[in-house]
Design a protein around this nucleic acid. Sequence first.
DNA 1: GATGAATGAGTGTTCATTCAT
DNA 2: GATGAATGAACACTCATTCAT
Lengths: 238, 238, 238, 238
Amino acid sequence: MTAARSSRRAGDRPRTRSAERRPKSPSNGRAGSPRPDKHAAAATPKSERSRDLILQSAAQLFRRQGFSATTLRQIAARAKIKAGSIYYHFDSKDEILDEVLDRGLRHVFETVKTAIERAGKVSHRRRVGLAIEAHLVALLETSDFTSANIRIYGQLPEHLKTPHRPLRRAYAEYWDRLFLNARRAGEIRADIEIVPLRMFVLGALNWTIEWFRLENRDAVLELARRTEMLIFEGVRKP
Amino acid sequence: MTAARSSRRAGDRPRTRSAERRPKSPSNGRAGSPRPDKHAAAATPKSERSRDLILQSAAQLFRRQGFSATTLRQIAARAKIKAGSIYYHFDSKDEILDEVLDRGLRHVFETVKTAIERAGKVSHRRRVGLAIEAHLVALLETSDFTSANIRIYGQLPEHLKTPHRPLRRAYAEYWDRLFLNARRAGEIRADIEIVPLRMFVLGALNWTIEWFRLENRDAVLELARRTEMLIFEGVRKP
Amino acid sequence: MTAARSSRRAGDRPRTRSAERRPKSPSNGRAGSPRPDKHAAAATPKSERSRDLILQSAAQLFRRQGFSATTLRQIAARAKIKAGSIYYHFDSKDEILDEVLDRGLRHVFETVKTAIERAGKVSHRRRVGLAIEAHLVALLETSDFTSANIRIYGQLPEHLKTPHRPLRRAYAEYWDRLFLNARRAGEIRADIEIVPLRMFVLGALNWTIEWFRLENRDAVLELARRTEMLIFEGVRKP
Amino acid sequence: MTAARSSRRAGDRPRTRSAERRPKSPSNGRAGSPRPDKHAAAATPKSERSRDLILQSAAQLFRRQGFSATTLRQIAARAKIKAGSIYYHFDSKDEILDEVLDRGLRHVFETVKTAIERAGKVSHRRRVGLAIEAHLVALLETSDFTSANIRIYGQLPEHLKTPHRPLRRAYAEYWDRLFLNARRAGEIRADIEIVPLRMFVLGALNWTIEWFRLENRDAVLELARRTEMLIFEGVRKP
DNA sequence: GATGAATGAGTGTTCATTCAT
DNA sequence: GATGAATGAACACTCATTCAT
């Protein structure tokens, strides 16, 4: 995430009222960061746990039913609180959406980058393969935020999409660089254009939310392997 | 459509009220059928034109905003009538959705089949290529119904999806047969499994709704050509 | 009203949505205007009668309890409709307030001006006396709109007051001219300043809402007579 | 206040709960009473200071926006505490209102009486003049409680007004006696009825809250002088 | 065939109030 | 003494739906 956008969220949209209420947003920009507390005791304060529960519940429902079909009362029920209580933690339904989207995209981005950085010196094909795998894992296995984001973003009204454009673009560019480097290195054919390729690949990956049902531990890895193969080798019998 | 499913829609779900009032649904299962009117005069009766306008409006809005974010008043406004008038033609918002979904899927299916049937004796790769092109044309160029269907289906509650399962399955099987035949004929590698392949391909095609903006006449054909190439050849430098 | 402000209301504030809904506001700027219909038949259309009933109900409740203590459900109950139905006629509670305030001020203004214009050539004291009487009649006898306006205006948030400033100023200036002319004519002492005088007089008049309870036909006229006397003669024994 | 009502407030309405918790209300009926603390040290205990701050904040907001438009959170914010903390000092929003109203009326009453008692042997006109001045000073200069009371009392629901009736009546009677004595002494014309006169005068005074903005030290005194003149002399050129 | 007017259930949101800490 | 977190009732407002005209 480093370059992409180091932090948003902290009061960057106009807050009309009730700044007095609500605790600080604990989202400190690093999704996978370790305990921010010095001493692991007192762990997560109650407030933060509630907040997270609400977001988690919202993400699941948004993903399943979409944003507008999801009721605050549904979110509350799933978080085992009452609808009104949500407003102790968030100013509006839109704000919940906002954070769900943000966490979702940060999560895939982080996951993909980490996977590639950890890999060290490997072939470009391997790098793309790792990205495919990481993207699918984030989408299908580890994060309701990511799958909610991918699934509902397109149908959102403009004003809800706007704040997320920069990070989306950054993620797209990250993939583009991946492909570009592979092409430069001769691991991808020279006649292939990067942007359509990225659209094609991410499309195939993202659409898995519509049909893939996680069954066993390795299902996603198997899917990733298969997908990478299709992308690189194509289906034609040589 | 012939084989797929010759007709549905006509009162296959319980109709609580007013079955007498409203005119029969003119969707008689055969899209291209000739005038059902006894005397060919009066072309399309006013009623049917209104009905179509409503459906068209609904499809556009569903596609853009999703089902639950779309209000009957928006649909009515776009069809230049008042919200109450919709109920002369439909029993409920769900019924509109139902027909939008149905027309949408029928349209791609029809388009794809027609394209392939017209082609006559060609290679299997060519057949798949034609299917890709036809699917993309239906999705991106000719039908708001198709794009609405593809885009919103996944987030619909179960009871709204149920009636559309058979036709969806039929369409999927149509593609499977296409790929199967190609594999049998040795135009697709033997180690490739059909179902994941179909998911991969249709995923890549369907996701185009999320980003493709129609600009010029041939844009879709160009996209189709590129996609076919990626699918068959892969990206690897040979 | 002629000079003061000939018309407002007709879509002069941004209407975010639902312009499609709701019938045109029938307030055509002239409060006491005769039937606007050509033929008295069909009299007031249903819509306009409902609208008026809502406004009337709102005015009474605003006057008694203030704006923010008055519920849309209370207004609806008094108008014998359901709360949701209000939105067929108005876009928001604020819009109702807006029209209540407007009608209220227009009504006193109209009443006072008419009384004076009708009087023709009379002494300035008589003119002031007629204005006092007319103001009190409007306030205490003929219009819940006027009493609501006078009573709640001061506690309203700024943005709800703003649109009514011009007409309020015009009314104040009308009184000022009345006093000014009387002073010029030597019917009021030369050392008396107009603005504080107007404040004093209108204050004494407006405060009557707080205690005056209409009992018999002539109570208001009697009150007016007494008030005029106090203002002109003072209480000192000569 | 002596005769009027020596004390109320202390548990004269049913107290459902927590009568034990909270500290006794320090309002012991005598505004200017000496420290009730045994040992004069510790001056005002923290509790009492918070209580006063809350009341002061409430008074200002009630006056500006009315009772029902004012939220406990606004009051708390202004008193620099959190909303929940208010309940350590008060049982309900109504109880705050109750004490604001009480302090407000006591304050004018006290102020007016003190002014007149201090004056000693003076003319009745002078006494009325002093009352006018004192009333205006309390209203416009020294007490948000008084202005809040005057401004919001009329719109309150019956059950909130009831407990304040006796003191209000006592204050009205105090003014009546002032005027009555003046009339007996021949300083006010014999044909003037006391009650309407009091209404007229207090109306003119009270309405000043609606427009008077304190600018310089003597503005209120100047206003008082002018008002007295208008009341006694009237506007007519002799 | 279509509309104007209304309804009732539900939505996001607010707010006085509670209470464990 | 005060707060953080929550609650439940109510609020303004929306929307699919109804139905007389």
